[in-house]
Design a protein around this nucleic acid. Structure first.
Length: 649
RNA sequence: GCCAGGGUAGCUCAACGGUAGAGCUCCUGUUUUGUAAACAGGGGGUUGUCGGUUCGAAUCCGACCCCUGGCUCCA
């Protein structure tokens, strides 16, 4: 008999050779039925795993946080089996991992297929998957010597699998590899898996896409099928609903419906035209941005949109970012480029005279418009474009000031993100394998970033090796209303441009000697395009009052009271509220419908009764009728709401 | 850039080898309205572009442009 310890610290005696499934059965029939996998000494294993010595064991059911990943992993195997059934022996299956952090997808599998497939084929594949689930095939784990495994896959014509085994041999020097078999399907896989395909919950195939073998664009393009799987129907339905909601909140759709922006084929892809309403939103954000920067000792600068190639040779951009820069134009026999970055201009401003340590830090900021070549296939509405305005800044400081400066940026970022109703999480990205500068510089800069985070009491995760080649950085990822993460503010300590090899940016220290300056490159919003595109989706087009292009729609019941309606409208304008007076011949219902669809925060319905009482009937776009009040009371309400921005909901 | 799918009126979509159609938007007129769509009439398309097949092409074929979903990449 073996003594095993259960999670509640109780000890259970089981006979030798028992599997985890047996253990579950011994604990109770309910658990036996719910059991999906197990843990032996904390390590996730199959239910069929034998219990060999006295160990701490745990039975994993659907409630366990790890269960979803196992379920989805098995789902991907079932998908691969179905595809092989339908498209024949020539199907090569490659990798098919579960996804648990992805907003849309729960798993995928990459295939090298003898034919192309489309989304129309997904229903057929789903049907075949359902057959496999109904057949309730047990998933058997096999542990084989690599050569034996290669033989089996060779027999099945699975050359990708053999390539993967060769890699395991080379990189991990494995002596055994694990395979999973379900019916006529065999896959190389670490596991664990559900005990049988019948345990698979509801699933849905969602998309067909291309994906490079091993994610390398030099390799063959495979066919990827995405899907998701859950434990119960409600979860799947809720997930599909969430995807549908996201689709409706797509900024490209809302951008058209709300007349926010447009892109024109004959002007060029990836080039945004800001219509008046989005223009106003951007103006408000930029004013807010400038105000907050000036309060914090930033200085606003402007730099030209084109520059001679000489500066980009010095900066190294031509060499490192040349592919992202547009072809040069000839000006008086010299090559000029449209700027892809703002830093060189800021550096040259700094360098127009020597700087004392007493003047530092200097914080130059610019809403700088840059143009970068982005491959055609990557363009996406306002979120991925070819011309965009960065809310850029370069801070020049001494090494002693670095940590405080980073802290200041973190404070600013926090303040601004909260104003837009965003929460965020923080990542510190450390030295990558390939890097410029010395290890000592990296250690110093990384430590300063750590310090800044600690002193602000900010909890963060380390992203080891995630820094850019010239800088360690802090990234803030913002969480939007749908639970998606976006790249937000980023703070980089540039160890390249200030160096003697590049710009030799210096200051004069108290010792009267020149020292290399510390340069921080940071952005809070990213780019106006991406930020506003993200905001549109975050708010589903319903901008909070302080950002709404039209804040109040004045809706007269009929044109008999147009005089009073005009007075209300003027009163709002005088109170600095953005009001729009609807004087059309529509019925009041139609006017309300129109303003609601335009997502105008407040509607003021005015008719004979209101004119008589010198009041307004207030309606909110989502809360409906709020009753009548005086115009002054309404204006006060709006001003309070505007002052709170996104912070008070 | 790569793989796949797509492009019909400003928008959403129909027609899928035989004279391009609807709803909304827009314009005009009537209606003077009480909390998400009053009524009537009218305008609007070389079917993304160019070429080919055909008696005849929105429809079939090819090239290019653009869009969508991904991949690589990225603010």
């Amino acid at each position: 008999m073996l003594k095993i310890t259960l999670p509640d610290n109780s000890v259970l005696e089981v006979s030798k050779g028992s599997t985890l499934a047996d253990v579950a059965k011994q604990i109770g029939p309910g658990l036996a039925k719910a059991a999906l996998a197990g843990r032996i000494d904390g390590r996730l294993v199959d239910l069929s795993s034998p219990v060999e010595t006295d160990l701490a064991i745990e039975i994993v059911t659907a409630k366990d946080p790890a269960a979803l990943e196992i379920l989805r992993h098995t789902a991907s195997h079932v998908l691969a089996q179905a595809v092989r059934h339908l498209y024949g022996e020539q199907v090569q299956y490659t990798i098919g991992p579960p996804l648990t952090d992805d907003f849309q997808y729960g798993f995928y599998y990459d295939f090298d297929l003898p034919q192309t497939i489309t989304t129309d084929d997904l229903a057929t594949i789903e049907k075949e998957m359902t057959k496999i689930v109904r057949a309730d095939l047990p998933l058997k784990r096999l542990e084989l010597a690599p050569q034996q495994a290669k033989k089996r896959f060779g027999g099945l014509g699975q050359s990708y699998k053999n390539e993967m085994i060769d890699d395991l041999l080379r990189n991990e020097k494995v002596s055994m590899v694990s395979l999973y078999e379900q019916g006529d399907f065999l896959d190389l896989c670490r596991g664990p898996h559900l005990p049988s395909t019948g345990k698979l919950g509801p699933f849905k195939l969602l998309a067909v896409a291309g994906a490079y073998w091993r994610g390398d664009s030099n390799n063959k393009m495979l066919t990827r099928i995405y899907g998701s799987a859950f434990f119960d129907k409600k979860q799947l339905a809720a997930h599909l609903e969430k995807l549908e909601k996201a689709r409706k909140q797509d900024h490209r759709l809302l951008g058209r419906q709300l007349e926010l922006f447009s892109i024109h084929e004959d002007i060029g892809p990836g080039l945004i035209h800001w219509h008046p309403k989005a223009g106003l939103v951007r103006h408000i954000i930029e004013s807010f941005w400038k105000e907050e920067h000036l309060k914090r000792g930033y200085q606003i600068v402007y730099t030209p949109h084109i520059a001679s190639e000489r500066i980009y040779k010095t900066s190294g951009h031509l060499e490192k970012y040349g592919e992202m820069m547009y072809s040069p134009m000839d000006i008086d026999g010299q090559n000029y480029y449209v700027k892809p970055m703002n830093c060189p201009g800021h550096i040259r401003i700094y360098q127009t005279r020597p700087h004392s340590y007493r003047e530092l830090p200097l914080r130059y900021c610019e809403l700088g418009t840059v143009y970068r070549y982005e491959p055609a296939g990557t363009l996406h509405g306002m979120l991925r474009v070819r011309g965009f305005t960065q809310d850029d800044s370069h801070i020049f400081c001494t090494p002693e000031q670095l940590s405080d400066e980073v802290g200041g940026v973190l404070e600013l970022a926090d303040y601004m993100l909260k104003s837009f109703g965003y929460t965020y999480s923080v990542y510190l990205a450390t030295r990558p394998e390939k890097f410029l500068g010395t290890e000592a510089q990296w250690d110093f800069a990384t430590k300063a970033l750590h310090q800044a985070l600690e002193s602000k009491n900010i909890s963060y995760e380390i992203d080891p090796g995630g820094g850019v080649f010239y800088a360690p950085k802090i990234d803030l990822k913002v969480n939007d209303s749908l639970g998606r993460q976006w790249q937000g503010p980023t703070i980089q300590v540039d160890l390249n441009l200030p160096s003697a090899d590049r710009f030799s940016i210096t200051y004069v220290g108290p010792d009267n000697a020149e020292h290399e300056v510390i340069m921080i490159h940071r952005t809070v919003l990213g780019s106006m395009e991406r930020f506003v595109g993200g905001l549109i989706e975050h708010f589903a087009g319903a901008f909070p009052l302080w950002l709404a292009p039209v804040q109040v729609a004045v809706l007269p019941i009929s044109d008999k009271i147009s005089e009073y309606a005009g007075q209300v409208h003027d009163g709002l304008l005088r109170a600095n509220l953005r009001s729009q007076l609807n004087q059309t011949a529509d019925t009041i219902s139609a006017k309300i419908r129109q303003a609601t669809l335009e997502k105008t925060p407040y509607m003021l319905v005015v008719g004979a009764k209101e004119a008589q009482a010198r009041q307004v009937s207030v309606r909110h776009r989502s809360e409906g009728d709020l009753g009548t009040m005086s115009l002054d009371a309404f204006i006060c309400r709006c001003q309070d709401e505007i002052d709170c921005k996104g912070k008070a909901g």
